[in-house]
Design a protein around this nucleic acid. Structure first.
Length: 561
RNA sequence: AACCCGGUGGUGUAAUCGGUAACACAGCAGAUUUUGGUUCUGCUUUUCCAGGUUCGAGUCCUGGCCGGGUUACCA
């Protein structure tokens, strides 16, 4: 988007370049994207994917895809499949480097025995609650577990029996022996293994003890010879532990680097909350176009190119930041403005009758497909005596700055003719049911040979040729920038869900060319926005999703009051 | 509270290691336009505070203040 982005190096890339220069990793750059398969990928993950795969590509390295699947109770192959699909859709490829932390369970186990042998790990038989209280508080040092001094022999025996399935869940854990008085709570003898008699989506019932994140992550990086282990800021606190395990084990020791995760206004990225919205029926599924999952965005009509450009734009730093949703929207507008063909569609139709156009007659008029791209060519659109136009494009008694159709005023119908409003027909309630106009045959195509100008150009659809469609108009998921901002403490973030996040238009009228559009194809509906064909479409009954509106300075003007 | 991290316009970032604070978006004004779109031009707005070092500090030092993360047998 700007030239600075071409030359600027964020702080992670600066580290990588420094390491390359000093030969720290023998010129290697090896990164990884390590999702836990317990949810669907969202745009926050896209930032991480772009960073990890992007750095690898830029510096001639590689990026692995690794599933961090150490918690059998939350994870599922459903998520594994979707994650792979979404990473590919975004435009990245891990070649043959698909890994799972669960593939390393045996090695991790052996290393745990090694730490026991070194006197750096022990089996603790305290109940969960006692472990927690024994850890103390930041102000009060923890007290050593009574099991802290168990002999290597006893620890080994118990740990092997833990693996052997002799104990119920929670009976014992394996803990690292570090420092119960450490100012850093995470270093007060953290848990390495817990007993869980649970079916793992990949290892089945082979294991009944599972490593914790802290015990598994650095070592998994180490096994894969990762050089730069890039993660989000909330893992900063875990780095001492990451380093401790690698050092204690004497194994390849990658550098963990933390960056700021992506936050967006009017939405929310928490996996837990996304799950709640899906399970609670607040949205229609993981691909609901209102949520920021990659599949939601895809169904909404976002392109991988726009998402990647956005991720490059947002920047990588160490402080928390919230991007305005408008910036994401600008990126899809920019992409689609270049690529999407234009069509005409009327969402809230009102009938126009061209009184001086012969009844029963119609004609085909050429229309440019994309003014930004001459190679997109043109198409023919049918014109006839009766047309649909947008109800809001007509006002009987217009304010000063309104320059669309009103009685006595002339406007242009896009690619067709100048028309002049000569009158209206209303129903008993005073609602306009028909607008009467005359057209000027000399203005065919939209230009007046006498050089006279009009202030507005309207989109329109010929009544007898129109295709009827359902159009889904999406708006922000939440009605305020920060979903957590609740006035009444008895309410939670869900009370901020936007009741108008979806508006259904059942009887939109489209130009006929839109009747055969294929699922996933994207168009600009002139003057309205970008739309894409939804998978719910049936032959003859297309369904369109609004990706984003066009910028609308008239709407802005109106909202000023 | 302790530990870790961070504070640059409204927002997001930059300033190549001490040398004139800049870019984008948003906002405002205007031009162009067969989309009130696109494009183009101009304008508004910035280094958390207080000391110190220095010819010179957004950058270094000290002390505050403010914000975030963490204090799980989740990741």
């Amino acid at each position: 988007m700007n030239d600075a982005a071409e030359t600027h190096r964020d702080f992670v890339r600066q580290i990588v370049e420094d390491d390359l220069r000093t030969g720290k990793w023998d010129g290697r750059v090896q990164t990884r994207f390590p999702p836990e398969p317990n949810g669907y990928l969202h745009i926050g993950h896209a930032k991480s994917i772009c960073l990890n795969f992007g750095i690898a590509k830029q510096y001639g390295g590689q990026c692995n895809l690794r599933f961090d699947d150490t918690n059998p109770e939350k994870e599922d192959t459903e998520y594994v499949e979707s994650i792979m699909e979404d990473v590919r859709w975004l435009g990245f490829d891990w070649d043959d480097r698909l890994y799972y932390a669960s593939d390393y369970f045996e090695q991790l186990y052996q290393w745990a025995e090694q730490l026991i042998q070194q006197g750096l790990a022990y089996v603790c038989s305290l109940p969960l609650e006692d472990i927690r209280t024994g850890r103390g508080t930041p102000a009060i040092p923890g007290v050593p577990s009574p099991y802290r001094q168990r002999s290597v022999k006893e620890n080994l025996d118990l740990f092997r029996r833990m693996r052997g399935g002799e104990f119920p869940d929670g009976a014992h854990v394996l803990r690292a022996r570090i420092d119960m008085a450490h100012a850093h709570m995470l270093l007060r003898d953290p848990i390495m293994y817990r007993i869980r008699h649970a079916e793992h989506h990949r290892t089945g019932s082979k294991w009944c003890i599972y490593p914790t994140y802290d015990y598994a992550h650095g070592q998994s990086d180490s096994i894969e010879r990762i050089t730069h282990s890039i993660c989000t800021l909330e893992f900063e606190n875990h780095r001492p532990l990451y380093d401790w395990y690698c050092q204690a084990l004497g194994i390849h020791h990658p550098q963990q680097i933390e960056f700021n995760r992506l936050n967006l206004t009017y939405t929310m990225m928490s996996k837990r909350r996304l799950l709640e919205l899906v399970k609670g029926g607040y949205v229609t599924g993981w691909d609901d176009p209102r949520i920021p999952t990659l599949r939601g965005l895809r169904r909404r009509g976002y392109t991988p190119e726009a998402i990647r450009a956005f991720c490059a734009y947002v920047g990588v730093t160490k402080h928390n930041a919230t991007m305005d949703m408008g910036v994401l929207e600008n990126h899809i507008r920019e992409d689609l403005n270049r690529r999407a063909e234009r069509r005409m569609a009327v969402l809230d139709p009102v009938k126009v009758v061209i009184t001086n156009y012969p009844e029963g007659q119609s004609e085909q008029l050429p229309a440019v497909n994309n003014p930004e791209d001459a190679s997109a060519g043109s198409r023919m659109v049918p014109f006839s005596r009766e047309l649909w136009i947008e109800r809001e494009d007509f006002m009987e008694d217009p304010p000063k700055k309104f320059f669309r159709l009103s009685p006595g005023r002339e406007v242009r119908l896009r690619w067709a003719y100048f028309v002049m409003c000569t009158g209206v027909v209303k129903d008993a309630d005073g609602r306009v049911t028909e607008i009467h106009c005359t057209y000027d045959p000399a203005t065919k195509g939209g230009d007046a040979p006498d050089g006279r100008k009009v202030k507005a150009t309207l989109h329109w659809v010929s009544v007898p040729h129109a295709v009827t469609a359902e159009v889904r108009l999406y708006d922000h998921l939440f009605r305020c920038e920060d979903p957590d901002e609740v006035s009444d403490p008895s309410l939670d973030w869900k009370s901020n869900l936007n009741p108008a996040s979806l508006t259904l238009v059942q009887q939109a009228r489209l130009e006929p060319a839109l009747g055969t559009a294929t699922v996933g194809s994207r168009f600009q509906f002139e003057r309205l926005g970008y739309f894409c064909v939804d998978a719910d479409s049936k032959p003859g009954q297309p369904v369109f999703n609004r990706t984003v509106t066009l910028k609308d300075t008239w709407a802005k003007e109106q909202s000023k009051g």
